[in-house]
Design a binder for these strands. Structure first.
Lengths: 252, 252
DNA sequence: CGTTGCATTGAGGAAAATCAAGTTGAGTGG
DNA sequence: CCACTCAACTTGATTTTCCTCAATGCAACG
């Protein structure tokens, strides 16, 4: 089922065996998570740092308000992050998968500003931030890479702001599906067939819509034969028309 | 009119005189822009870096798509940043004032992802990013401070996402006004009286509303005697009730 | 086999967008 | 100083979109 694109299957199998010995050198996510071009010594420095941790479905990786110690690189699984306001308002700010880095928001105040919750059994590398900063002083390419990751998060957030501020319901859902499709594809899964890990309500929260609106939009896309929806399973039948949903608002 | 809170007026006047000699040591924004606790030698290292630049009202600090070289610290003035999509969709992602840092989004791809436009005559310090990274390797507190600034931007964006995803028009406008009020206050201006630098349309774009909706919400707040609006001039008459607009939706 | 959580669908209503006049105010030039 | 222009703003009427409320379906699970 798992088909890594970046490495040989044999290497991946080997990984499976050593999976409780933390090792960046052998990690299948090296290309996602670390800058290319580190030499062996540099990679070894990192090995000291990280430690693995498992979170079962529904479990918290961290709570909003918790003291910040570490960033988390997702090794496998699927998580959501949500911000909460004192008045009970809350919102999913992102869905996160293999190779992505969580906890960047907490650097600013040394306190996590969001909950991170596993939507399926997941495994993360815990990276103590103080150590990462220390090591990155001696490895400029690592520092640069880290800055790019933070910046990418800012760019991503701006994209979501654009979505929330100027798209209609169907455009939002199309954008969401295309984004998921691309990210699954990057990780070696089918870009046309995948299972949603989140509920309609969580999708709605992320997209600034109510769950009924999400459901209706799914049904509409299905009627139009752009996708098929079977509960959590999505098949994209006509990705070109799904992309068209983004740019124009003309409906037959 | 200008009443800096963090430094003595005399120091500020002195600054006015030397304003074309770039000097972080003498800058009135030191506390905003630099980590506290740098010694003189460390501050001098920074002086090499930055160079001033003026942008007149309506002018671009940078265009989306431009090659990224430098971050910009705002010394004075007021700017907006907007993202644009290929399909013509565009959105204001932020309004920025004295002491804030622009260009963080561009680190990820070495290309600016948004336009930055001056809404009044402004002055910025140009900080070549490569040099900043280099210096921050030798000054850990500077590196830490920079990471906190990036992280703060992520937290800010999450706040905007929450606003766009789950607030009604009046709540958004109230949130916007309170945010401006706080930021003016921090910079030594009145928290109850200020002039908007942006149009209703720009406010609307930022808040995910049409300009007419913004205008109506202003009028409503005025009818309720929470604020007075005279074109661009805003007076907050009852900040408590403005804050209430955020938390509850009950209207008399 | 009832309970529970999630999803779908319909009907009605509220919020904001859109469309359409007007108004105001700053800048321009006679 | 006045007329003119233009952009920004306000306000009202109408339409669209999405939310809310409610009923129902459906699969998983003790």
């Amino acid at each position: 089922m798992f088909k890594p694109v970046l490495i040989e299957p044999s290497i991946y199998c080997q990984l499976d065996i050593v999976q409780f010995k933390s090792s960046c050198a052998a990690c299948s996510l090296r290309e996602l998570c670390l800058p290319v071009g580190l030499n062996e010594d540099e990679v070894k420095k990192l090995d000291i740092v990280s430690q693995k941790r498992k979170i079962t479905r529904g479990g918290y990786l961290h709570h909003a308000g918790a003291k910040f110690q570490s960033l988390y690189a997702i090794r496998s699984g699927f998580l959501k992050t949500c911000v909460l306001e004192q008045d009970g308002r809350h919102q999913v700010t992102g869905f996160h998968m293999t190779g992505e880095l969580l906890g960047l928001d907490a650097i600013s105040t040394d306190v996590h500003t969001c909950d991170a919750i596993a939507l399926e059994d997941s495994e993360v590398c815990e990276i103590p931030f103080a150590k990462l900063e220390e090591i990155s002083r001696t490895i400029p390419s690592l520092m640069r890479h880290f800055h790019k990751i933070m910046s990418r998060e800012i760019v991503r957030d701006h994209g979501v702001m654009l979505l929330l501020g100027s798209m209609k319901a169907e455009e939002r859902l199309a954008s969401f599906l295309l984004n998921l499709s691309r990210r699954f594809h990057l990780r070696g899964y089918s870009e046309y067939n995948f299972n949603l890990r989140m509920t309609r309500e969580e999708i709605g929260s992320y997209l600034g819509l109510k769950l009924e609106t999400v459901s209706r939009a799914f049904s509409k896309f299905q009627d139009e034969e752009i996708i098929t929806v079977d509960n959590k399973h999505i098949q994209i039948k006509d990705i070109a028309r799904l992309r068209m949903k983004l740019s124009n608002s003309d409906v037959s």
